[in-house]
Structure formats: C-alpha cells, structure tokens
Design a protein around this nucleic acid. Structure first.
Ligand code: MN
Ligand code: MN
Ligand code: ZN
Ligand code: ZN
Lengths: 141, 141
DNA sequence: AGTAGTATCGCAAGTAGTAGCAATAGCGTA
DNA sequence: TACGCTATTGCTACTACTTGCGATACTACT
C-alpha cells in the first residue's frame, strides 16, 4: 500500500507539506528533532510554518510511518518507524546515551503483562540512571 | 541535619522564596505541578516570580528533598523525596495512570545492572503502553 | 555592627511545542 | 472540468518551562 492509499484509508490527505516532512525524516539522521526538520524544509520552502511540521509529524505517526522517543526532559526525537525498535539508557551524571536491544527489556515487559495486564512500550522513553563509568567513580568527579 | 545546615553544606542559601517552595510542596497533593506551586505561593506573595519557583524546585532536588517524575510528555510532576518510590504505568489509549511497586520493576533493574552496568531510576519516567481494559477491547473503541 | 563576595532574585526574552481560527486546497462526486 | 465538503494550512497566541542580566540580599568574616 502506497502513501496516498494509506493516508486516504484514514481520511487524511496528501499535501506538499506532508510529503516534505516524510522525505525530510527519511533523509535525516536517527533521533532528529522537529526543529531540525522544520529548519531543513524552510530552507527550500520558507512559507511552511513550524506548526505545520509538528502537526504532520503527528499525522505520520498516526499512520505508523514515524515515531518519537524521549531521550531527555525537553526535546522530542523523531525517526522513521521501520528502524529496529530499541531502548535507551541515559546517564544523568554524564549525559551519555546507550541503546539496548528490546530483548534486554523483555523480561520487564513480560512481567507487566502478566501482573498488570499492561502492554508497555519500553522504547518510548529513555530509562534514566547512572552509567557504568559514573558508577565506578568514587563521588561525582 | 536541619534545612539551613543542609543548604550551607552545598554552598546554598536559605531564602524566603526557597522555604516557601518547600513548604508548598509539603502541603501539596502528590504529583503536583510547578505551576500549581507557583500559583499558591503567589496568592500570598505576588512578587515572587514563577522562574524563582522553577529554580528552587531544582535546588531542593539537588538537596535530595524533592524529586520530579514525568507522567506525560508535557508537564513535570513534583513531590517530596521521602514518599515511597513507585513506578507509573500510563495508558496511551485512555490516559489512565496506575502506580506499581518498585519490586515489580526490580527484575529489569537487576538485568540492566548486570548486562550494562547501568543503575536505572525506573521511577523517573512513567512507562507508557496499553492498559488491560484498552487491550481487551477489539479495535480501538 | 559593618563589609565583601557571591548565591539568588525579579524581569524580560528565548525555546519547544500546542491550540484556535479564518483562508486555502485536496478529494469524491457530478 | 466544476463544485462542495472539510482536512489542512499559515498565523497568532498561549503553555511550560529555561536562560541571561543587573539588582538584591544571604553568609562568612572582621
Ligand atoms: Mn526528568
Ligand atoms: Mn511521547
Ligand atoms: Zn555517566
Ligand atoms: Zn487504557
């Protein structure tokens, strides 16, 4: 099923703005930001408003073509939905980011499913904590 | 060790604004917002700026007296640090929030410690997913 | 009590989005 | 090709913070 068909199946329309956002996210590095996407698009199409970019990221997410994750408290990161899902470990001491395979997180997922009937999306928000390096350092320097 | 001593030990000072923020968070319901705290303080002290409240929440967090958690993408929730730690499960379909004991999350913590040397704070961000009720419903209605 | 040093303050501007609104433009149908 | 419905757009204002700056006021020291 191509883009137009997928859009129409949800009562959505194909617009220039929408395809530019999709194209930009496909060309962007993994974990890019909405601001970065808007900046790139506005280089060629300065009339396209940032709010349109935000709205289209949401629309493309509803379509299942893109997703977002949260690596820190402030900026949402966007990427295409077809890259392999993975979790993130972010150190609150040094800021380092580390990817972890979903398989490492599966035991927790299984437990939440069993105990709470809850199907978690453990790729959505990074897990914050203290990394190996920072843990091995005596105090905080 | 009392408040002033704890503050001074970190080169921090005791100000009216700071004690008002601490008092407000102690009187507030669990999982309150910075805006709510600012609003309450400004009823009695309208000259105190919201940015001062944000900065003091951070300072009191560095002192270990308060903490914050993220239940959704937008608003940070604050509470005193001495309440029992717990995780949160938030349903992206119906928005329901559920608390889970840290013990349920401990197997994942143990695994991340062992496999990655990473000490996670699983209480910091809510785990998003689909709750039991929403899962049992056929499509999405 | 008086003073120096600097943490903290109020204020204003900036950041990363979100939301309401009237104008525009896709899309199904004729 | 033309027409009507309404999804989407650009614009503006708003939310929830964050940051820079010069003024203020805690603290330690005398
Ligand atoms: Mn946080
Ligand atoms: Mn999110
Ligand atoms: Zn680290
Ligand atoms: Zn639900």
């Amino acid at each position: 099923m191509d883009l137009v068909t997928a859009l129409h199946a949800q009562g959505k329309r194909l617009t220039l703005q929408r395809s530019l956002v999709l194209e930009a996210i496909r060309r962007s590095r993994h974990h890019t930001t909405a601001e970065e996407i808007a900046r790139r698009i506005r280089e060629q199409h300065p009339q396209i408003d940032p709010s349109t970019v935000y709205r289209n990221l949401e629309a493309l997410e509803e379509l299942g073509l893109v997703t977002h994750t949260h690596l820190n408290d402030r900026i949402t990161r966007w990427h295409r939905a077809d890259v392999e899902r993975h979790g993130h470990l972010v150190c609150r001491a040094c800021g380092s980011e580390q990817e972890v395979p979903m398989a490492s997180l599966e035991p927790l997922a299984a437990r939440l499913r069993r105990d709470q009937g809850f199907e978690p999306d453990l790729a959505h928000s990074a897990i914050v904590g203290i990394c190996r390096t920072c843990r091995s350092v005596p105090s905080g320097r």
